[in-house]
Write a protein that binds this DNA or RNA. Sequence first.
DNA 1: CAAGAGTCTGGGAGCGCTACCAGTTTCGGC
DNA 2: GCCGAAACTGGTAGCGCTCCCAGACTCTTG
Lengths: 336, 336
Amino acid sequence: MTDQLRRQVTLDEVAERAGVSRSAASRVINNAPHVSKAKRDAVQRAVSDLGYVPNATARALATQQVGAVVLAISSDNSQVFTDPFFAEVAVGVNSVLEETELELVLQLATSTRGQTRLEQVLRTRQADGVMLMSMHGDDPLAQIAENSDVPVVFGGCPVGFEPRYYVDADNRGGARLATEHLVAIGRTRIATITGRMDEGAGTARYKGYQDALAVAGLDASRVVYADFSEESGGRAMEQLLADHPDLDAVFVASDQMAISAMRVLKDSGRTIPGDVAVVGFNDVVLARHTEPPLSTVSQPIQSLGREMARMLLALIAGESPTPLILPTRLVRRASS
Amino acid sequence: MTDQLRRQVTLDEVAERAGVSRSAASRVINNAPHVSKAKRDAVQRAVSDLGYVPNATARALATQQVGAVVLAISSDNSQVFTDPFFAEVAVGVNSVLEETELELVLQLATSTRGQTRLEQVLRTRQADGVMLMSMHGDDPLAQIAENSDVPVVFGGCPVGFEPRYYVDADNRGGARLATEHLVAIGRTRIATITGRMDEGAGTARYKGYQDALAVAGLDASRVVYADFSEESGGRAMEQLLADHPDLDAVFVASDQMAISAMRVLKDSGRTIPGDVAVVGFNDVVLARHTEPPLSTVSQPIQSLGREMARMLLALIAGESPTPLILPTRLVRRASS
DNA sequence: CAAGAGTCTGGGAGCGCTACCAGTTTCGGC
DNA sequence: GCCGAAACTGGTAGCGCTCCCAGACTCTTG
């Protein structure tokens, strides 16, 4: 590998070496029709001789397409992305994008600066498409995104409005599954600790809990509102115990919260699942390792990413995909 | 917000509205000198009236800079990125990039396709800089990267060669700290379970273990080689117990492995830390929640990301930063 | 008051590629 | 053997921006 200072090889050079016009060369690069076999071969040879690689920027300028899509996580708190959830989504997204020519740009829109940038992308088409995760319903970005003329798919349905294109996990169904399971094992005084009610996942999981209890004809009033975070789960559990010392089961809207809830439960002298059965949501790695191992609802996170990417691709191709709800399933372990 | 179909506002339009030449308008956009206050104001007014946002693509083509850097995770296995480690690195990187105009593109170079793409980026300058994580020493990409004329900073020092620019955690020092701690609490038959020896972190942690025992004058021959994965940790522990039933401590090169090692230890009837003290590495969330909570070595992962980004920025600015080793520290919990 | 040093200013030439268009060939069919 | 359609072909006009350059203008100075 000669380490010569090789400046960019251009299409013109390829064309010259192949003895054709730039237009013809361009056609074979984009394998468009109307070019004879002979010239096509000549160009291809020149390409590999010269090690030509098209300049993405120039192409983008000429075609008015950017060649990149952005995966945006909008949040007031950059720590959120630290949740392995997003990493998995990214893996899923990447796996389908890898089959295309599109690049994946990551936008952790945490600061105002990030928000502004995302807004500009949406307004001035600096990307061919956008995947927007974890929008809170009142985020102005949601409206901007929905009215933008760049294709946007939402990851998770924000509370407050239903975007045209989104893929979400069946949070409501999963919560219902979890709660029904609690009913099935004979519990009758079933409480819940909710997530943030300004997030779609939070409200949906709460609704699923209500659904199940309504069907079973049980009381659904043992509820404390929390915010998905570990600490909030512990606090909520204390509250619950104070308000309803007789509860015999609790559906917790996230594993993080469930874990500290279990600790509070144990500290209060209760056994799990003997006195109180616990079911969480998300199936994080940790859930397998708690004492006892935590029953939980698992959602196909990588699929979520994959489907978002696929939907975006469809949108870019001019199709009109329909929203997608991915199934969730109960993973029963020893805590229930 | 009128939802008119607004095509891109161009610099020419801004210039015309402001009654100046395109050149002048360009100067004020990039706030370059040589433009009178009057015109500057006029242009600025036009910009905000029209809602002008420069077209990044056109600018990139004209300046021969891309306006984006890539964060590449090279691995044969896309699951690797699922490790929260990378998500944290990404957060760190993002936090410093957010202060600049640069975009962050994510390259999970798992498939051959991804590898090829990364290689092209490196060869044909499709990015202003590259951050390369988790290179195995024999990966040909490492050499390509090192000889590329696009700025590259390595995250973690691959075994086999030392890149010009990298930032790494002090794996060796951390392992030494952990092992010294084991010595300090009176253990004398200290074993280790290593990580993959084709990764820098694997060899460095093993060396740190040897360092500490050499200084203490203790036997460093109780070692089993594993690969960082949870399963391999359990298997290694069984092996260790078979070979050296008398061991009274084990330094495990990752928390994942330590966790299953602890399980094996308990299954064999030993108490932790009574019979055998255990120290892990990484300080994953899980470490706080094991039974007993796991002593471990913690590394500043977000800082790693931040420093990689800063180093890359320096490189792009034409400076020659020196490699950086970030400190690690021992987190003592109940397992030792 | 003229010369020289700055400071503005707009024209124009690209950056590397695509895409339209008009012109040239080829070829089957009558 | 002539005609129209269809397959080729290369020239050229951009995509939106930066940056060099030559010319015009404003101040200092001696």
